[in-house]
Design a protein around this nucleic acid. Sequence first.
DNA 1: TACATAGTGTTATATTATAACATTTTAAAT
DNA 2: ATTTAAAATGTTATAATATAACACTATGTA
Lengths: 130, 130
Amino acid sequence: MHKEHTLTKNQQIIFDLIDKSSEPMKAYSILFNVQKKGIKAPLQVYRALDKLVEIGKIHKIESRNAFIACHNSSCQVAKATAFSICEICEKVTEISSAGLSKYLANFKDKDGMKYSKYNLEFFGLCKKCR
Amino acid sequence: MHKEHTLTKNQQIIFDLIDKSSEPMKAYSILFNVQKKGIKAPLQVYRALDKLVEIGKIHKIESRNAFIACHNSSCQVAKATAFSICEICEKVTEISSAGLSKYLANFKDKDGMKYSKYNLEFFGLCKKCR
DNA sequence: TACATAGTGTTATATTATAACATTTTAAAT
DNA sequence: ATTTAAAATGTTATAATATAACACTATGTA
Ligand SMILES: [Zn+2]
Ligand SMILES: [Zn+2]
Ligand SMILES: [Zn+2]
Ligand SMILES: [Zn+2]
């Protein structure tokens, strides 16, 4: 469950844009889209993105340098994320699987070490592209 | 098991450097280190990196934009990778766990879709940093 | 030899992200 | 209400990461 945060103006503008988007958005594409709302510089975008990631409202797709809104209420605030990525159309979907998150949260490496924070990206072809 | 490839001169120089390194290396750090061997431009580095990733000799740590040599002989040529990353000292270790790779290779999403290719990055504190 | 494929060298440029600093807003705490 | 600390903003400049385009060379193979 997401802790409720009151977003600031810039954060809200940028979150709304990402949330409405059907696909992950890149920082400079976000910048282009919010310039008419007065956000003019990359740093303004990156600062809002950093905060939104920190509080779990969005996630960064590391292999794509892009950002997607979280629609997974069981997401532990940006700490444990999993996505499927279509290698043809680049559609990205957040995976919400209790089994998967439980398996990964309980996974121990050779030294018996557990990791509560992880990011998993699966690659394949989506339904349409198969 | 890695298919054997004969590396070209640039590929070999860059692989040797990454392989000797105790930590993931970034592209421009690689460039700096191989300039005395005649590799002068970013593109020469990126082309070698692309190929080395493709054939599974190295992996890219996506969250760090850095490259590490593969020391996991069961790695299916760059397709299925898992790492632990220390958030303090940035030590990165490739995870070699039959159980984990089996679980992930067999994971099915809501649509019953399987993904043979994935990248997983665990974050936490290494032994030293705890 | 002819041909296709992969690799190289080079210059220029695109894309992604942060440093530094001054100022303003916000939300407590007194 | 005033003080104060933390967070956010605005701005300019720059750093770091990655690719486009083009001419050329090496390699394998039919
Ligand atoms: Zn989420
Ligand atoms: Zn697709
Ligand atoms: Zn490997
Ligand atoms: Zn460490």
